[in-house]
Amino acid sequence: MIRLVAEDPAVRLDADQVLRIQFWILETLPALGCHVRPDPPIEVIITKHFADEVHPPLLEQVEAVAGCRFRVTASAD
C-alpha cells in the first residue's frame, strides 16, 4: 500500500478533484485500487500496486490537483 497524506490539514477536495486524482494515479501506476478521502486530513491510499514509489512527476500532478503537498509512505499490502 502506498499512502499519501496532505501536509495542509485545512485542505478539502471536491468531487472533481477526487476523480482527477484517481484518474492520474490509476492511469500512471500499475495499481488496482485508489481511495481518496476528501475531508481533512486528505488521504490517498493506493492498493494492490506493483510499484514501490510514486514517481515525482505523478506526485507533482496530484499535488497540483489537490492544491497542497503530500507526505508519501509505503508498506506491504
Rank of each mutant, 00 (worst) to 15 (best):
Q61N: 04
I46W: 12
G33C: 01
D52S: 13
V11S: 06
K48S: 11
R12F: 12
P41N: 02
T47E: 14
R20N: 11
A6L: 07
L13G: 05
V54Q: 05
P57Y: 11
M1F: 09
V5H: 04
R37K: 11
E60R: 15
A10G: 07
I2T: 06
V72H: 10
I45Y: 06
L26F: 10
L32R: 15
V72C: 06
L59F: 07
L19M: 13
V72N: 00
W24S: 08
T28I: 01
V36L: 03
P9H: 11
P56G: 02
D52G: 14
V18K: 09
S75V: 00
Q22N: 07
R69A: 09
P30M: 01
D52C: 03
L13F: 11
P38R: 10
F70E: 01
V54N: 08
L4V: 12
H35C: 02
A64I: 00
C68H: 11
L59P: 04
P38L: 03
D14K: 06
A66C: 05
D77R: 10
V62T: 01
I21N: 08
R69E: 06
E60T: 11
R12L: 09
L58Y: 14
P9D: 11
A66E: 01
M1E: 09
A64N: 11
L13C: 08
A31M: 08
I21P: 07
R37L: 06
L32C: 02
L58I: 04
V65F: 05
A6N: 07
I45P: 00
L32P: 00
V72F: 06
A10Q: 13
H55R: 09
E7V: 13
A64R: 15
A64K: 15
T47W: 10
V62R: 00
L58W: 12
P30R: 14
D14G: 09
P56F: 02
S75Q: 12
